[in-house]
């Protein structure tokens, strides 16, 4: 790692000030992407502003059909939360399938979505559930939050504070994990809510996206057989040593069918 200064503010105002006053300050959440990246010297920072000491960023609450999760809530806390399990079991299931138990004990929802790894699981849940990302300066719909590979709508010094998820009628997430890294080669989050069916795909493209043609047929009939004749185009999809674009396109329909079956219980 290149050298940096470590700071642990106790409030969001203090954190924002520290970021503003630094040359090239980075926010440190769970650190499970940032630290490995710093260790490989793929990134550097003048200051790491650790959000671990800010109480208001932690915890889960639900009211009026919306579950709100603080940015510094870990994956294992979301997976084990009875509130999340009752309201949106698919979300608890997704959180419990990220990485491994030790990664889930440190990794946070705010860190995951701010990083926006193209193969991360959480972006699919946010877009699939039509969630809202709350930050230190505004609220952004998930559809507008994830803007590209490792890119989000967050501005300089803007910090994610929580994510609000409307409770769907039913939902499920299925992924085809890379056997070594456990990142999703393709993951599909399917949700049936008051505004219809949403299908969010992660791992396949540069960033999470909605499979609109699949949403259209699932709005006609919410069953795996509705997807049978859909052939997703492989244009623009990721291609690497793990899977070709064509294979990823095929996996989108396969994971969608499994997710729909799972959602229908």
């Amino acid at each position: 790692m290149y050298s940096f200064d470590y700071k642990r503010p106790s409030s969001l105002d203090e954190a924002t000030q520290m970021l503003r006053n630094s040359d090239d300050g980075h926010v440190l959440a769970g650190g499970h992407t940032l630290l490995p990246t710093l260790k490989q010297r793929l990134a550097s920072a003048s200051d790491l502003v650790d959000l671990a000491g800010i109480e208001e960023l932690k915890g889960i609450s639900s009211a009026d059909g919306v579950v709100t999760i603080g940015a510094m809530t870990t994956h294992s806390e979301v997976a084990a939360s009875s509130e999340v399990q009752n309201a949106i079991p698919a979300l608890a299931d997704l959180a419990g399938g990220i990485g491994d138990p030790q990664v889930r004990n440190k990794g946070t929802i705010g860190g995951s979505i701010s990083n926006n790894d193209p193969a991360a699981d959480y972006p699919a849940a946010l877009v699939g559930l039509n969630a809202t990302v709350n930050t230190t300066s505004r609220s952004i719909s998930a559809d507008n939050f994830f803007t590209g590979m490792f890119e989000t709508a967050l501005g300089d010094g803007e910090i994610v504070t929580s994510v609000s998820f409307p409770v769907p009628h039913s939902a499920a997430y299925c992924k085809f994990p890379n056997p070594a890294s456990r990142y999703a080669i393709v993951g599909v989050f399917v949700a049936r809510g008051s505004d219809g069916v949403r299908v969010a795909v992660t791992g396949a493209g540069a960033s999470v996206f909605r499979a609109r043609e699949i949403e259209a047929v699932l709005n006609q009939g919410f069953s795996a057989s509705s997807v049978a004749d859909i052939q997703v185009s492989d244009e623009g999809l990721n291609e690497d040593i793990h899977a070709s674009a064509e294979y990823r396109a095929h996996l989108i329909t396969v994971m969608t069918k499994r997710a729909v079956d799972k959602a229908n219980g």
Binding site: Y6, R8, G31, H32, A52, S76, Q102, K106
Partner: peptide, 14 residues
């Protein structure tokens, strides 16, 4: 809680 101590700063454990 179990964590991977190679992916955590000593400062985070303060």
């Amino acid at each position: 809680k179990s964590v991977k101590s190679c992916t955590m700063l000593a400062a985070q454990a303060d």
